[in-house]
C-alpha cells in the first residue's frame, strides 16, 4: 500500500513540475501562437532571481515569490513590446528571434552572475518530510504540487469566468473577427505574454531548491514544456493539466521499474506515436471551422 502511495506521490511531484513549467508556455502558445523558445530562459531567470534575493538580500524563498512573478512578467512585457509584437503571423521568425533571445539571456547571466552552479535554500518550514498513508514525501514537493494546482486553477478561472478571459478565447478562435468586434488584441497579447513569462519565472523559483541553478538550466525545461503542450493539445488548458499528469506518472513508473534513461526514451516514443495518430493532441478544443 505505502509503495503504491509513494509511487503516486512521486508521479504527482514530477507532474507538478511539468505543469508549472508548461503552463506559461501553453498560455502563450495557445493564445498568441508564438513558439517561445526563450521560455526556458524565463524559468532560469526566475531561479536566478530567487538565488539573488536570497543570497544578497536574505529574503526567504516564500517571501520572494510574488516579487519574482512581477519581475519576470515585466520582463516578458518588455520583450513583447520590443520584439515579439513585430513578429506575429511570422512563425519562423519568432522561433529564430526567441531562440536568439534565449542564447543572449544565457550569456548575459553567465557574464554577470558567473558560470558557477548555484543553489537556493529551501524554506525551513518546508524542509522536513511528511507521512501520508504510510508513505513519506518531502513537504516541499507537496508544496510545489499545491502551488502548481493553485496556479492552474487561477489561470483557468481567468480564462473561463472573466471578461478578459472571454476576449482571449475570442482572439484565440479568430483574431481578425475578434478585433472587428472592438477587442484590443494587441493589449491582450501583451498581457498574455507577460503573464506566461511570470508563471515561468515562478516555476523557476519554485524548482530552484530541488535542482541546480545554472545559466543553461532552461534548455531542458523548454523541451519538457513543449512535450506537455504538444501532447495535451495546443489550445487546451485542461489538456496541459492532463498531459502533465499522464507524463509525470508514466515516467515515474517507468523509471521505477527500469531507470530514468529508458523512461525518458519510452515516453518520447509514446508521444511520437500518439501525435502520429492524434496530431491535435489529447484534448483539442471543438471549434466550428
Amino acid at each position: 500500500m505505502d509503495f503504491v502511495v509513494s509511487q503516486i506521490l512521486t508521479g504527482l511531484s514530477l507532474s507538478s513540475i511539468l505543469l508549472l513549467v508548461a503552463l506559461g508556455l501553453a498560455i502563450i502558445y495557445g493564445v498568441t501562437g508564438v513558439i517561445n523558445l526563450a521560455h526556458g530562459e524565463f524559468v532560469m531567470l526566475g531561479a536566478y532571481c530567487a538565488w539573488l534575493l536570497q543570497s544578497q538580500l536574505g529574503w526567504s524563498l516564500l517571501a520572494s515569490l510574488a516579487v519574482i512573478f512581477l519581475l519576470i512578467a515585466a520582463l516578458g512585457w518588455l520583450i513583447e513590446v520590443a520584439v515579439i509584437r513585430h513578429l506575429y503571423d511570422r512563425p519562423l521568425d519568432t522561433i529564430l528571434a526567441t531562440w536568439g533571445l534565449g542564447v543572449m539571456t544565457q550569456q548575459i547571466v553567465r557574464l554577470t552572475a558567473g558560470g558557477e552552479l548555484r543553489y537556493v535554500q529551501m524554506p525551513p518550514s518546508l524542509s522536513g518530510s511528511v507521512d501520508i498513508l504510510g508513505a513519506t514525501d518531502s513537504a516541499y514537493r507537496l508544496f510545489v504540487l499545491a502551488v502548481a494546482l493553485g496556479l492552474f486553477l487561477a489561470t483557468w478561472c481567468i480564462y473561463r469566468y472573466t471578461s478578459f478571459g472571454l476576449k482571449l478565447r475570442a482572439i484565440t478562435q479568430n483574431r481578425a473577427i475578434a478585433s472587428s468586434f472592438g477587442i484590443n488584441s494587441a493589449r491582450a497579447y501583451r498581457l498574455t505574454f507577460a503573464y506566461g513569462a511570470g508563471i515561468a519565472g515562478l516555476a523557476g523559483a519554485l524548482i530552484s531548491p530541488l535542482k541546480s541553478v545554472s545559466p543553461e538550466m532552461g534548455t531542458t525545461y523548454v523541451v519538457d514544456a513543449f512535450m506537455v503542450v504538444v501532447l495535451g493539445g495546443v489550445q487546451s488548458l485542461v489538456g496541459t493539466l492532463a498531459s502533465s499528469a499522464v507524463l509525470g506518472e508514466t515516467s515515474g513508473l517507468l523509471a521505477y521499474y527500469s531507470n530514468d534513461t529508458i523512461a525518458k526514451a519510452l515516453v518520447l516514443v509514446a508521444i511520437v506515436i500518439i501525435i502520429r495518430f492524434r496530431p491535435q493532441g489529447l484534448f483539442a478544443p471543438r471549434v466550428r471551422a
Binding site: 511531484s13 513540475i17 514537493r141 538550466m217 515516467s251 515515474g252 523509471a255 531507470n259 534513461t261 523512461a263
Partner: peptide
C-alpha cells in the same frame, strides 16, 4: 543504475 547526463529529477 545510470541516469542521463544533466538529469535533474531524482524522485524515482
Amino acid at each position: 543504475e545510470y541516469v542521463p547526463l544533466g538529469h535533474s529529477e531524482f524522485s524515482s
